[in-house]
Design a protein around this nucleic acid. Structure first.
Lengths: 158, 158
DNA sequence: CGGCGTTTCTTGACTGCTTCAAGGGAGCAG
DNA sequence: CTGCTCCCTTGAAGCAGTCAAGAAACGCCG
């Protein structure tokens, strides 16, 4: 649960104007990592009594462009957002339920790993994005996939 | 350039019926790795004089489901396909022009790396998908980004 | 070799996520 | 407080991909 004043400071530091929609969305992303845009619209509307669809899309774009939030999009999922930036962490994604879990990066700084040995032709690599695919505890024990289209959500209170 | 008979054998081995659309699409994916669906429709239409939109989507779905082709989708790109499967290789993606280059995996077998040390909670990881982001030779030397929306393509003849 | 059942392709329409565009409203410097 | 600039609202459109019904093709079998 981030301090509103701190969120405001983050916006100013990034050279952005401080508006209620931006504070609401930024707070929502902090509190609920890995939500998709639709869910973030809902989360923002619990903070403000009204905010448009489009405003949330605009805000998310600005926040990602300035690096205040990070956008992730595993195969078969819509765009999701998280506020944990700067550290070079990765994600585990459950193939069945779609839940996303953060994993720390071993080496720390980006790019945490370089293309191994032989192959890097003339590429200047600045980031290695890693997604670990597998199955979470509950989906690994329960044999059949419960949900058809995975609707990932965080562990915790909505 | 794969042998048509070999492609046919691959289809049969996977338990699929051999049809001209499937041979055309599968050949196109072999010859032109990392193409998107629209481009593959075009490539298939150079092999067959007519094939529908929908057929290509269906074929690609079946081929991915059976593991004959692999689907990749870097951030901000539409779905792309490649026929190099089985080896656990990864990709370099240029942030500017969007070109995709294969990189061999150091360790070989999937999952080539496990979530580092501390964090894997109850997850059974079976694959680690790695995308290296950076800039290719020409985009690294040329300062400004030439293309707005990246239109990745392979190096080679179309 | 030819018929039949099942799978697959064609045609056409549609969904859902995301973006474009124009105008009124809000933040912030002076 | 005033004005400039940027941001949010409203409404509509774009695009990749999907759904659905019927025709055509594959391939098993006699």
């Amino acid at each position: 649960m981030p301090d509103p004043a701190e969120l405001e400071r983050d916006l100013r530091t990034a050279g952005l104007r401080v508006t209620r929609p931006r504070l609401a969305v930024l707070d929502a992303v902090h509190v609920h990592p890995h939500l998709d845009t639709e869910a973030l619209i809902g989360a923002a509307r619990t903070r403000l009594e009204s905010i448009s669809h489009q405003a949330v899309y605009d805000v998310l774009r600005v926040l990602t462009d300035t690096g205040l939030v990070r956008r992730i999009q595993p195969q078969g999922s819509v765009a999701r957002y998280e506020a944990r930036v700067g550290d070079n962490h990765h994600h585990l994604v459950c193939r069945d339920c779609g839940v996303i879990v953060d994993v720390d990066c071993a080496t720390g700084a980006a790019p945490c790993l370089m293309p191994s040995g032989d192959a890097p032709p003339d590429f200047v690599v600045d980031e290695a994005e890693v997604i670990y695919w597998g199955r979470c505890r509950s989906c690994a024990t329960a044999p059949a996939a419960p949900s058809t289209t995975a609707r990932p959500a965080e562990r915790g209170n909505p």
